[in-house]
Amino acid sequence: MTGSALEAVRARRSWSKVTDAAPTHAELLTLVSAAGRVADHSSLRPWRLIELRGADRERLGRAINKANDEKGSSSKPLRAPLLIAVVASYKKSGKVPRWEQEAVASGVAHVLSLLLDEAGWGVIWRTGDYTRSKAVAKAHGLEASEELLGWLYVGGKPARERLGRRKAVDARRHVSRMPGGKGTKRASGATVEPEGL
């Protein structure tokens, strides 16, 4: 099985250090439009993204320090020229629970990080205890029905950074059959040869 999506996922890595280059607003909109195609029960679109550039990052730094009861401004948001705040924006629904809506917002962020990486940008998803603080929520203008899930830090990929090899995931340790019948395999259990369904 080959394809650009498979190759992009296999090549993905987190970039903790990036250069000052960043995608433009227009470039970002193109990628967000594609990322928004994730599975979304009832098409609620329970998410939104906030661009932080320039002085926005300094305001976030002050909010982070306030959340941590510290003075001044945290330098953490200055690690990348573009931060994309990932917001779960919950909608009232009798069919789609809150956890499922948060999963959609997370899915959008993950797909966006893959698209950014494939487009040549370095990305890392950063979080912290302060993501749920009042000071940080206020700095982002969040509503009562919204939660911050962290930020995608985006910038240029350093040309000389050594690329460490990521260990491949052993899928057999994470995929099993439903328990209770032949062919059942648990991560730590014995395997019985499967029968056809």
Rank of each mutant, 00 (worst) to 15 (best):
V86K: 00
E143L: 11
Y90A: 12
A171N: 00
A8T: 15
A168C: 01
G107W: 06
L31I: 04
G155L: 03
D117R: 00
G183W: 01
I124M: 12
P179T: 03
L60W: 11
L115I: 03
P81I: 14
H140N: 09
Y153C: 09
S106Q: 05
A39G: 12
E51T: 15
G181A: 10
E7H: 04
S33K: 15
V86T: 12
V9P: 07
A34G: 00
S113Q: 10
V87I: 15
L114Y: 09
A88L: 06
E146L: 05
T184F: 15
L6H: 08
K91D: 04
R132Y: 11
A88S: 15
K71P: 08
A22S: 13
R59Y: 03
A21V: 03
S73T: 11
S89M: 04
H41E: 02
P194R: 02
S145D: 09
K182Y: 08
S145Q: 13
E193V: 07
R186K: 07
E147F: 00
D56G: 04
S113H: 10
R186W: 10
A139L: 09
A88I: 02
R132E: 12
V18Y: 09
S33A: 13
L163D: 10
A144I: 00
W121Q: 07
E7F: 04
S74I: 07
A103D: 01
E100R: 08
R172F: 02
V86R: 06
I84A: 06
M1G: 14
V18G: 06
R10F: 12
R177S: 06
V104Q: 05
P23F: 08
G155C: 11
E195T: 09
K92G: 08
S4M: 07
R62V: 09
S42A: 04
R37C: 11
E193M: 14
G61H: 03
V9L: 14
L29K: 06
K76M: 14
K157V: 11
W99H: 13
A109L: 05
V154E: 13
M1L: 10
M1W: 05
A144G: 05
K157R: 12
K71D: 14
W99N: 00
